[in-house]
């Protein structure tokens, strides 16, 4: 199921356009990392999903509903979260639970569970002004999970944390991922996104410039060929006979480990079968390569170019029909 859908989102503040025709889709159970430089529009995007801001145009759906209809069912950890530091973590979470409509013994039990999850049981009754930044961020995760939300939005989770705090935060996010939470993480920390997420999008000047599953970023010296024609299934058989690791997706053929000999045989095969190669590009080995490639203003590989949500939905429906 689609957890989050943003379609053609435009957001302006006065004369400055922050988000331009942004399209994004997050599937249920996915941990989606949104990368971007400061000012790329990441926090604005989260505020739009939370309903704090309204888009100038476009559509936002969270589990098929408007953000307003999902009020209280989206967990949110803001960047540079500031607390009411006169409280202890337990008091704070209990107060927030009350605002959210939870009460009594069930709330107390939920608060205890969350304090244990984030490793704050021992410090639960100390005032938050005595907490380290790492502990404070963990309270932030706990408050975001309080209402057992269907979707978690986390803005710069490791912002301002020391290395120890960053490691703790990463472990906590991995725990949440293993529990099947749907999470959208905004960050400019590449290693954090690479360690925690299974899909990543790169936001450049308010638009999604590239989007890919992290599993696709494994090769170091691969190539991607783009064909002009849409191949038949017969080509797959021929490709596998050359090298079983070659993957075809629509008009894109990915060779994870390329050699000159393999490349020559592949091009000969395509020529013999009557296909025209419109482009041949090296694969981007890791997230860092992809990020630097995209923010420098270059086009990402064709298979990593973001699609409009309707196009994605169409392809998903087509896959389901085939199955």
């Amino acid at each position: 199921m689609t957890a989050l859908l943003l379609e053609n989102i435009v957001k302006r503040f006065d004369t400055t356009t922050i988000l331009r025709q942004l399209n994004l889709m997050v599937q249920e159970g996915q941990v989606y990392g949104l990368l971007g430089a400061n000012g790329a529009g990441k926090s604005t995007l989260i505020h739009l999903i939370m309903g704090f801001l309204y888009p100038d145009s476009g559509r936002i759906e969270v589990f098929g509903k408007t953000p307003a209809a999902m009020h209280g069912q989206i967990g949110y950890l803001p960047e540079r979260l500031r607390y009411h530091t006169h409280c202890s973590a337990r008091e704070y979470l209990t107060y927030l639970g009350n605002f959210g409509g939870q009460r009594g013994a069930s709330l107390a039990s939920r608060v205890n569970d969350l304090l244990e999850l984030v490793g704050l049981t021992e410090a639960a009754d100390k005032r938050m002004r005595t907490y380290s930044k790492g502990m404070t961020q963990r309270v932030g995760i706990a408050q975001a999970l309080l209402a057992d939300p269907q979707l978690l939005l986390i803005d710069e989770p490791s912002s301002g944390l020391d290395p120890q705090g960053q490691i703790e935060m990463r472990d906590l996010l991995l725990d949440l991922r293993s529990q099947g939470h749907t999470i959208l993480i905004c960050s400019h920390q590449l290693d954090e996104i690479e360690a925690v997420c299974n899909r990543v999008g790169i936001l450049v000047q308010g638009a999604l410039a590239a989007e890919t599953d992290l599993a696709q970023l494994t090769g170091t010296n691969g190539i991607v060929l783009t064909l002009k024609e849409t191949p038949t299934d017969a080509l797959d058989f021929a490709l596998r006979s050359i090298d079983p690791s070659i993957v075809r997706d629509d008009r894109f053929i990915t060779v994870p480990e390329n050699t000159p000999a393999l490349q020559g045989r592949l091009l000969q095969l395509l020529l013999d079968e009557g296909y025209t190669v419109s482009s041949l590009q090296p694969t981007l080995g890791n997230l860092r390569d992809l990020y630097l490639h995209v923010v420098s203003g270059k086009e990402p590989p064709a298979e990593m170019q973001p699609q409009a949500p309707l196009a994605i939905l169409d392809s998903l429906l087509a896959n389901e029909e085939q199955q």
């Binding site: 939370m50 704090f52 009020h71 209280g72 069912q73 989206i74 967990g75 949110y76 803001p78 540079r80 979260l81 500031r82 607390y83 009411h84 927030l96 605002f99 959210g100 409509g101 408050q143 209402a147």
Partner: peptide
């Protein structure tokens, strides 16, 4: 104040 975001995110 920015603290309000956490409260506004609730069903309040």
């Amino acid at each position: 104040r920015p603290q309000g975001y956490v409260v506004l995110a609730r069903s309040l």
